[in-house]
Design a protein around this nucleic acid. Structure first.
Length: 568
DNA sequence: GGACTCCTGTCCTAGTGCTCCAAAGCACT
C-alpha cells in the first residue's frame, strides 16, 4: 500500500509541475518514477529498512527521488509535494484529466479566468466565456462541455474479457465489409492487460472503411474522423480507435498500435542508434522502407528477437530477450492439465463425467476436481462423508480412462484462524488440496498474512488459490503481504495459483514476475464451474506471458503428477 | 528530475494524425 501512496505523490507532483510549466524532463522523471513504483513487485519499505541507499538501484530513481522516498517513510509526507499542492488547488488537476484538455489549456483557464475546478469550468463554458480566450472558439467550448459530461464514463476501465468480446464483434462487423482486407485488434487488449481503457482496431483496405466504421451500429459519438484514423465512443461509453494502413505496412502498424508506448519508444530509440527510423508505416533507412510487412521483420531489422505482445511493457523485456533469445513462452500444448475445477457436487454445473470428457477433449492428462469444502454453505460445500463418496465415484470413473485421470481434490476453505475447513484424515486421502480464502476479507494485513501462511503450512496443502481474492472491477484485493506469503509457500513447497477465470486473473503481472524471480511454483487453474469454463486457460496463459513464466515455473506443465502429491 | 561522463556539464524518450484556429495543442501506441 505504501508503494501506491508514494507513486501517487510522485504522479501528482508531475501533474502540478506540468501545469506550472516546469522542465519537461523533471516532469517526466517524476511520472516515470511513479509508474515504476506503482508496478514494482517489492515493497519499498523493505528496501528502505534493509538499506535506504539501495532505493537508488531502482531504475529511474536517483539521489533526489531516493531522498524524497526516505522523507516519506520518515515523516509521512514529502515537503515538495505539499508545497506544490498549496500552489495549485486539487480541482485544477481534475481539469487536466478531462479529455482534450492538456496542461496548456488548463493553465490558460486558470491564468485568464481563475478557473480552478471542473464546476467553475462548466459554468464558464455555459456562459460563453471560454470562446473569448486565445486559441479557443465556439467548437472548443462545446468540446469542453462534452468532455465534462463524459468524464466518468470514459475514464472507467473494463475487464479484458469484456473488451475482447466487444472487439471481436467489431472485427466481425468490419470483415463482412468487402472494402476490408484485414482487421484485427491491437493495443492493451492484444497485450492482455487485466483491464482495458479503450479498444484499438487496425485494418487494411479502402479508406472508405473509416466512414463505415463511424456509421457502425452502437456508435454514440464520433470523436475524430480523418483519412487514416477515427475515434468513436460507443453507446456503452467505450472508446474505439480505428487505424487504416496499406497492406505492406500492416506489420509495422500492428507493432505501433500494440504498444506499449514505452516499449515503442525504447525500440524506436534502438532503431535511431542504428541510423533507422520506425513509424507505423515501416522501418526506414532514409526515405527507403526496409521492413514493415510483419512484426517479425521489424524485430529482425533492428537486431532483436521477436518479443510477444504480452511482454511489451518496457519493463526489461528488451534486455532480457537480448540475453535469452531462445526464451520460449508458455504454449497451450505445454499444459498437461487443469488444477482447479468444480462439479455439480458443489456449485458447478457439470458432472464429473462431463468435466472429464471436456478435459480429455483438450488433450489433458489430468483434471483436478476441487469442489468446495463444508463451510461454504452457499456453494453446497461437501462434508467429509460426501467427499468420501465423491472419491469413490472418481475411482470408478478413472478405471475407464486411458492416459488420463481425474485427480481427487478439494478446495478447502481457510478459516479465520488459519486452520483448514477439513480434517487431515480426509486431506491425506486426496491427490491435491487447494486452500483458499472466501471469508473475512477485511482482516488487517498482518492478521490476513499470518492466517494464510498458517494454512499453507498444513502438510497436505498443494496450492493457494486466488491469492488476493480480487474480482476484476468488482472487488479489491484483501490486504495481504503476498511476498511474505510467497516466501512461506516456497519453503513449504506449496504452489501459488494463477487463477485463469477472467473475473479474477489473480495473481496479477507484478506478482507473477515476483513469483518467477523467487522461484515459487505457479499453478494455473481455471476455477471452472462448468465444462465450457476449461477454455479460460487461455486467459491464464496470456497472464503467464505477462509474468514471463515458462513451463518450468508452472505446476501444470510438470508431466509427473507425483509432484502434486508431494507428501505421498 | 535521471543517467552518464566527468567532477561540471550534457543530454534525455519516437513519430504521426486530427482538430480547430489559423500555429499549436492534444491525441494515439
Amino acid at each position: 500500500m505504501e508503494n501506491q501512496k508514494i507513486a501517487k505523490i510522485f504522479s501528482e507532483t508531475s501533474d502540478i509541475l506540468e501545469i506550472l510549466g516546469d522542465s519537461r524532463f523533471k516532469i517526466r522523471a517524476y511520472r516515470q518514477a511513479s509508474q515504476t513504483i506503482e508496478t514494482y513487485p517489492y515493497h519499498l519499505r523493505d528496501i528502505y529498512e534493509d538499506d535506504p541507499k539501495k532505493l537508488d538501484d531502482i531504475p529511474g530513481i536517483g539521489k533526489a527521488l531516493m531522498g524524497k522516498i526516505i522523507e516519506i517513510f520518515e515523516t509521512g509526507d514529502c515537503r515538495k509535494h505539499v508545497d506544490l499542492v498549496r500552489k495549485i488547488k486539487p480541482g485544477v488537476l481534475d481539469i487536466l484529466r478531462l479529455r482534450g484538455i492538456g496542461p496548456k489549456k488548463t493553465k490558460l483557464f486558470l491564468d485568464e479566468l481563475g478557473i480552478d475546478s471542473v464546476v467553475k469550468l462548466k459554468d464558464a463554458a455555459k456562459r460563453g466565456l471560454l470562446r473569448e480566450l486565445p486559441g479557443m472558439g465556439e467548437k472548443s467550448e462545446d468540446d469542453v462541455l462534452l468532455a465534462i459530461e463524459s468524464y466518468g464514463r470514459l475514464t472507467a476501465r473494463m475487464p479484458m474479457y469484456q473488451a475482447l468480446s466487444i472487439a471481436e464483434g467489431i472485427i466481425d462487423y468490419l470483415k463482412v465489409n468487402k472494402k476490408v482486407k484485414k482487421a484485427t485488434y491491437a493495443g492493451s487488449l492484444r497485450r492482455r492487460l487485466e483491464t482495458i481503457g479503450d479498444i484499438d482496431i487496425l485494418a487494411c483496405g479502402s479508406p472508405k472503411i473509416i466512414g463505415d466504421f463511424c456509421d457502425m451500429p452502437g456508435v454514440a459519438h464520433v470523436e475524430a474522423k480523418g483519412d487514416t484514423k477515427a475515434t468513436v465512443i460507443l453507446e456503452s461509453g467505450i472508446q474505439v480507435d480505428l487505424r487504416v494502413v496499406p497492406e505492406e505496412s500492416f506489420g509495422a502498424a500492428l507493432y505501433y498500435f500494440t504498444g506499449s508506448k514505452a516499449h515503442n519508444i525504447a525500440t524506436r530509440k534502438i532503431a535511431q542508434k542504428k541510423g533507422m527510423k520506425i513509424n507505423e508505416y515501416g522501418v526506414f533507412k532514409g526515405k527507403k522502407s526496409v521492413a514493415g510487412k510483419t512484426e517479425d521483420e521489424i524485430f529482425k531489422k533492428i537486431g532483436l528477437p521477436y518479443i510477444i505482445p504480452e511482454m511489451r511493457e518496457d519493463t526489461g523485456e528488451i534486455e532480457f530477450m537480448k540475453k535469452n533469445p531462445r526464451f520460449k513462452p508458455l504454449e497451450e500444448s505445454d499444459i498437461q492439465g487443469d488444477l482447479h475445477s468444480h462439479t455439480d457436487w458443489s456449485d458447478g454445473k457439470s458432472s464429473l463425467a462431463e468435466m472429464a470428457e471436456a478435459a480429455q477433449a483438450r488433450g489433458y492428462k489430468y483434471l483436478a476436481i476441487t469442489d468446495h469444502s463444508q463451510s461454504v454453505k452457499v456453494a453446497h460445500g461437501m462434508e467429509v462423508p460426501r467427499l468420501e463418496k465423491q472419491l469413490l465415484e472418481i475411482d470408478k470413473l478413472n478405471k475407464g480412462f486411458k492416459g488420463f485421470r481425474l485427480l481427487k481434490g478439494c478446495e478447502v476453505d481457510i478459516l479465520k484462524d488459519g486452520s483448514l475447513d477439513m480434517p487431515d484424515s480426509i486431506l491425506e486421502k486426496l491427490d491435491i488440496v487447494v486452500a483458499s480464502v472466501h471469508t473475512y476479507f477485511q482482516l488487517p494485513e498482518k492478521e490476513q498474512t499470518t492466517r494464510i501462511i498458517k494454512a499453507i503450512q498444513n502438510p497436505f496443502v498443494t496450492l493457494l488459490a486466488h491469492p488476493t481474492g480480487k474480482l476484476t472491477g468488482m472487488r479489491e484485493a484483501y490486504d495481504v503481504d503476498l511476498l511474505k506469503v510467497m516466501r512461506a509457500a516456497k519453503k513449504a513447497q506449496v504452489a501459488i495459483e494463477l487463477n485463469c477465470n477472467p473475473f479474477r486473473l489473480d495473481l496479477d503481472t507484478k506478482h507473477l514476475r515476483a513469483a518467477r524471480d523467487m522461484g515459487v511454483m505457479v499453478s494455473l487453474g481455471t476455477d471452472s464451474h462448468s465444462a465450457s469454463h476449461l477454455e479460460f486457460i487461455e486467459y491464464g496463459i496470456a497472464m503467464a506471458h505477462r509474468g514471463w513464466l515458462q513451463p518450468e515455473n508452472i505446476l501444470n506443465c510438470q508431466k509427473c503428477i507425483d509432484f502434486i502429491r508431494k507428501n505421498h
